[in-house]
Amino acid sequence: MIKRRIFYIFFLAISVLVQVLIFDRITLSSVFLVQYYVIFVLLLPFNLNKYSVLFLALLSGLLVDIFNSTPGLHSSAIVFMGYFRNFFLNIYSPRDGYDQNKLPGIQSYGTGWFIRYSFFLILIHNFVLFILEAFSLENFGQTLLKIFASTIATIVFVVLGNIIFFKRNK
């Protein structure tokens, strides 16, 4: 239990650092904005109670916000995602329920399941994030494009991150 906690503290630190030091500085295109740090909330254990999920999501969002000088922006988006996490876990749950000892990652239920589970959550996150950031309906098409493009880019990197990070658990 304690070991797992320490692991998640490191996991949070690394996810946030990868986000702010690598992905927030990549300037390949202005529509593919990878929001890698969502991997932390996606991979929290099944049996963690839903209130803890909300507060941990808030924590990760605040950390990213501090680095970007955008207080409340990422926090709001990721808390939305944390709120809907259980809902999507229930929708895609296998017939006999989840194995509580496993993590909601690729190594437990496969890539297809993970992409289905994370797609809508990341979409919700990006929707809130980019709408709040633009805070106007001006250039709405551009904002929508950004939301979908970033969702796809984020999923690609979250899947890669998942494979690299949790290889041992297989």
């Binding site: 808030l58 501090i66 000088s69 955008t70 409340g72 709001s76 808390v79 709120y83 709040l132």
Partner: peptide, 29 residues
């Protein structure tokens, strides 16, 4: 709980003004 956290986030978001020297939530901390 979700609503309270969102209210907290939105307060941060809309009360933040870079010209105020809000020290903590700033990349110069």
């Amino acid at each position: 709980t979700f609503l309270l956290i969102q209210i907290f986030c939105f307060t941060l978001l809309f009360s933040y003004n870079p010209y105020h020297r809000s020290y903590f939530f700033n990349s110069s901390n």
